[in-house]
Design a binder for these strands. Structure first.
Lengths: 157, 157
DNA sequence: ATGCGTATGATATAATATAGAAAGCGTCAT
DNA sequence: ATGACGCTTTCTATATTATATCATACGCAT
């Protein structure tokens, strides 16, 4: 399952950038496309290798600049633990996200859990700390990879 | 203020390792000492440079191995966002920690906030995810660096 | 003394990321 | 139309962070 229509996601990204007054250039669009097509997180150099096949001039700054742009525009997330990148899942207006990293199958799930973000906001506020960006990443085993009786799948919903 | 007695912290570390059946060798002790003396987080190569002055044979694996040991023994934390290391604050039995990184003054504060860890555990459980390690790091401004009316200091306590 | 586990030494290289200068290319005010 | 500006891309070089691999040393139990 190649996921929900990459072309549509690219078009949505285009609209978002227009709205933000930024440009989703061809280069950036190609990089976003590569990120969207992958099931697993990709590193900058994996992306670079792929990019090189269509754009011979590509070098590390090429990909890092494109990724910086995509991250600023909330189209891509950087997973610090992996030094790797995944598409942003969501239509959401980006409060905060949390990531569940399965070290068995390598997939990363994006959450936007208000219980977590509220707890973080409260913990920060209690210390007079003004957060500007949160990084929340859990290593572990996803529902599919975990031994069944260790972690029963979530109640059906 | 050089902080609470580094020698005592080293001795406590020694006892902890003995209890764990691991050895706080001279090399590891020296590296821990370097980490303890710094107010700011130090990168592996900053530590390496300092270590070289007393141990000419030191090379990258030297420092990375020492750090791995110290981290496994809960004596040091790695701050992913900074690729840098700080001493573990605590006597605590290491449930989970969270870190507040001030990008003005560079200090990192370690928390052990149960509101946060409970919220994370709940969020993970709800998706059938079994966490093995949590990374929670907030970038922002500490109470000292934040403009006063943006973030009033915590209620006196 | 031998063998085993753990720690350290030594060399090389891999992987990740940024700096900085210059050229291309629209666009838009004059 | 042109030239000044802003943004993007190119190009070259280098900085920073991290690991692989094999060899050597040391303590200690058999």
């Amino acid at each position: 399952m190649p996921g929900p229509d990459i072309a549509a996601q690219l078009d949505a990204a285009e609209r978002l950038c227009t709205k933000n007054g930024t440009q989703l250039t061809t280069l950036r669009r190609v990089v976003l496309d590569l990120v969207l097509r992958s099931t697993a997180p990709l590193t900058a150099y994996q992306l670079l290798d792929q990019l090189k096949s269509t754009r011979k001039s590509a070098v590390p700054p090429t990909i890092y600049r494109a990724l910086d742009f995509l991250i600023e525009n909330h189209l891509v997330h950087r997973i610090e633990r992996l030094n790797a990148f995944i598409p942003c899942d969501a239509d959401h207006e980006h409060a905060d996200a949390q990531f569940l990293i399965c070290h068995q199958c390598g997939t990363v799930t994006e959450l936007e859990d208000h219980g977590v973000s509220d707890a973080l906001a409260a913990a920060a506020a209690a210390r007079g700390f003004t957060p500007s960006r949160a990084m929340v990443e859990l290593d572990g085993l996803c529902a599919t990879c975990a031994p069944p009786d260790t972690a029963p799948p979530p109640a059906h919903r």
